[in-house]
């Protein structure tokens, strides 16, 4: 399903689904070919901003050729995107990165973990694994949930909030530990680095295979500039050093292979 192009996308709809979190549906060619866990580069129009903004694909409707991006307004680029309206044009570098290995984990007990703005790509994974034994643990700061209802038709859902206002008080690992009897074979996760570090450690201690999606500031998005690397345990095949390109070899890595 490799697809790589500069897509001229068209906005279908956009809404603010939680404070500062926007859900943007776009019609574009890349939507027909995306893997769960891949991302796109969205180009701002303003001359104040030059580089594409890497945003994970939340979900796609391949038959309709549309993709959903759920992002947090974090700076000038995403602020501009939040003003996009129906029928606006949007230029995308699509599709980027590898995505989660969903075909390899079928038939297993699969735990998905998403924290904060790391939740959106996990929805696409849940949809790709619909009908499998999938348990999604999603973590929020407080009761301002988003996307939680979208997971429900696809898998079992467990919610954690830092303040305990909904679900288990604490993070997604606390929620997993509270679910006695659940013994995952595989964890797939996206979220802030402290969460991913904790998942890597938890998976290693419990003999669970873990795939984690990393993020880093990037420029080209296609593996040329070497801006977005992460440390690796073994020498990387492309770079021949212990650094690998998150945009190209990632963003999804076997947790054992990265030194985070």
């Amino acid at each position: 399903m490799f697809y790589r192009n500069i897509d001229e996308g068209k906005v279908i709809s956009q809404e603010e689904i939680s404070s500062g979190i926007f859900s943007l549906w776009i019609k574009n060619e890349g939507a027909k070919h995306a893997n769960a866990g891949q991302f796109v580069g969205v180009y701002p129009n303003s001359k104040d901003t030059l580089l594409m903004r890497p945003i994970s694909i939340c979900e796609t409707d391949a038959s309709e050729g549309k993709m959903r991006l759920v992002y947090r307004v974090a700076g000038k680029g995403t602020k501009e995107f939040s003003g996009l309206k129906e029928n606006d044009s949007v230029k995308l570098l699509a599709n980027l990165g590898n995505g989660f290995p969903v075909d390899e984990v079928k038939g297993k007990c699969i735990v998905l973990m998403g924290g904060g703005i790391g939740i959106p790509p996990m929805l696409g994974v849940a949809k790709a694994l619909k009908g499998e034994d999938v348990h999604a643990f999603i973590g929020y700061r407080n009761k301002d949930l988003f996307l939680s209802d979208d997971f429900l038709p696809n898998c079992k859902v467990y919610i954690a909030t830092e303040d305990g206002s909904v679900g288990v008080k604490g993070n997604v690992i606390d929620a997993l530990k509270a679910s006695t009897g659940l013994k995952p074979d595989v964890i797939m996760a996206c979220g802030p680095m402290p969460m991913l570090r904790a998942i890597k450690q938890y998976a290693a201690e419990n003999g669970i295979k873990a795939y984690i999606s990393l993020e880093e500031r990037m420029a080209c998005g296609i593996g040329a500039c070497l801006g977005c690397v992460c440390r690796t345990v073994k020498k990387d095949e492309h770079s021949h050093v212990n650094n690998t390109r998150i945009c190209t070899e990632g963003p999804v890595f076997d947790a054992e292979e990265v030194d985070i």
Partner: peptide, 23 residues
Amino acid sequence: GNPTPRVAEVYGGMLNAIGLQNP
């Protein structure tokens, strides 16, 4: 090469400090 972050956008351009990572 250098530790990350290696790149940043600035007004009218960007900064990079890749540190010449190469194979």
